[in-house]
C-alpha cells in the first residue's frame, strides 16, 4: 500500500511498466488541476482511477490518451515519451491504444459495422470481406453479433458502449482506456460491462485503465486503484488496501460521505450569505 502523495508507484514485480507518469502538472489558466502526479501502470493490470468531481481524473485520462499536453512532466507509453514523438510515430503509438469514451463517441453517420471497421480501413490494406469478418468477431466478443447494420441511434445506451468497446479493440490494442464505462447504465448492464472488461484483460492480455466514480464497479474489476483528490494522488494500491486505509478522506469517499456535511449550520449559512451581507453592510 502506498499513501503516495508524490512518490512514484513501485511497479508490480516481474511485469513491465507500460505507462509511466512522472511529475505531471496541469494548469487551466491560473487554476492548477494536477499537482505533480506519479503513476506506473504495469502490463496486464486493470488500473482504476477514481476521484470526485473536479479531482482531475478526466484531465489525467486525456493526458494518458495523448489528447492533451500537460503543463510539465512526462508520460511514457510503451517506452515512448508521447510528447517527444514525431507526428508519424504518435500515429503509430495510437494504433496500440484503444479508447471507449463515456458516451461511446460512435460516428452517427456510419453504421455500427462501419464504425468498428474504420480503424482497419484507415490503417490497414485488408480487403473489405476480411474487415467485415474481423468486425463481426469483435462484435461477438462484446455480445453484439448481428447488430453491424444498425445505426448508433438505433442502439440502447449499454449497446452503444459495447459497440464502442468493439471499435476500441478492433486493432488488438495493447492498452485500453475506459472513460466512465458505467455512467448512465442500470446496474445489470453496468455489471455486464464490468464482466466484459475482465474478459478482455483475461482473454486478450490487455492493460486496461478505467476512469470511474462507481465504487461497486471499481471494486469488481480493479487490480489496483488510484484515488485522485484535488489534483493529488491520495492513494494507490489494491482494493483490499483501499478498504482498510485509515485516511478519513478515503473512508469518506468509500462511504460516500460528503465533507461538506460536517460543516456546521452557522458556518454553512455564513458561507452562503457572507458576501451578500458584507456588500449590504458596506452599502449601508
Amino acid at each position: 500500500m502506498s499513501d503516495s502523495k508524490q512518490k512514484p508507484t513501485p511497479p508490480a514485480p516481474q511485469l513491465p511498466t507500460v505507462i509511466e507518469v512522472r511529475d505531471l502538472v496541469t494548469h487551466y489558466g491560473t487554476r492548477q488541476i494536477l499537482n505533480g502526479i506519479n503513476v506506473d501502470i504495469v502490463q496486464g493490470e486493470i488500473m482504476v482511477i477514481m476521484g470526485g468531481s473536479g479531482s482531475g481524473k478526466s484531465t489525467f485520462l486525456r493526458h494518458l490518451m495523448a489528447l492533451q499536453m500537460p503543463t510539465s512532466g512526462t508520460i511514457k507509453i510503451l517506452g515512448n515519451d508521447v510528447w517527444d514523438l514525431s507526428q508519424k510515430d504518435l500515429f503509430g503509438l495510437r494504433k496500440k491504444l484503444g479508447v471507449a469514451f463515456q458516451a461511446g463517441a460512435l460516428f452517427s453517420s456510419m453504421t455500427v459495422g462501419e464504425n468498428i471497421m474504420l480503424p482497419l480501413y484507415e490503417h490497414t490494406k485488408l480487403d473489405r470481406l476480411t474487415m467485415q469478418i474481423m468486425a463481426r468477431m469483435k462484435l461477438e466478443v462484446v455480445d453484439l453479433a448481428g447488430f453491424e447494420d444498425l445505426m448508433p441511434s438505433e442502439l440502447s445506451g449499454g449497446m452503444v458502449k459495447r459497440a464502442a468497446v468493439a471499435r476500441a479493440i478492433i486493432m488488438d490494442p495493447r492498452i485500453l482506456f475506459f472513460d466512465e464505462p458505467s455512467a448512465g447504465l442500470d446496474p445489470v448492464v453496468s455489471s455486464q460491462l464490468d464482466d466484459l472488461i475482465l474478459r478482455l484483460r483475461d482473454a486478450m492480455g490487455m492493460t486496461i485503465c478505467v476512469v470511474t466514480h462507481e465504487l461497486e464497479s471499481a471494486f469488481k474489476i480493479a487490480d489496483r486503484i488510484t484515488v485522485l483528490d484535488k489534483g493529488d494522488i491520495l492513494f494507490i494500491g489494491t482494493v483490499d488496501e483501499l478498504k482498510k486505509h485509515p485516511s478519513e478522506r478515503i473512508q469518506n469517499l468509500l462511504n460516500r460521505r460528503s465533507e461538506e456535511a460536517e460543516i456546521d449550520a452557522d458556518e454553512y449559512l455564513r458561507r452562503l450569505m457572507g458576501e451578500k451581507l458584507e456588500t449590504e453592510g458596506m452599502s449601508r
Binding site: 489528447l67 500515429f91 495510437r94 463515456q102 458516451a103 463517441a105 460512435l106 452517427s108
Partner: peptide, 22 residues
C-alpha cells in the same frame, strides 16, 4: 460542432486518424 461535443473528434485522434485530414 456536434462531433466535438460527442467526443467523436477525440475518438478520431486516439484512433490515429487526423481530424483535419479526415
Amino acid at each position: 460542432g456536434t462531433m466535438k461535443i460527442n467526443q467523436e473528434i477525440d475518438a478520431l485522434e486516439v484512433m490515429g486518424i487526423n481530424p483535419v485530414r479526415f
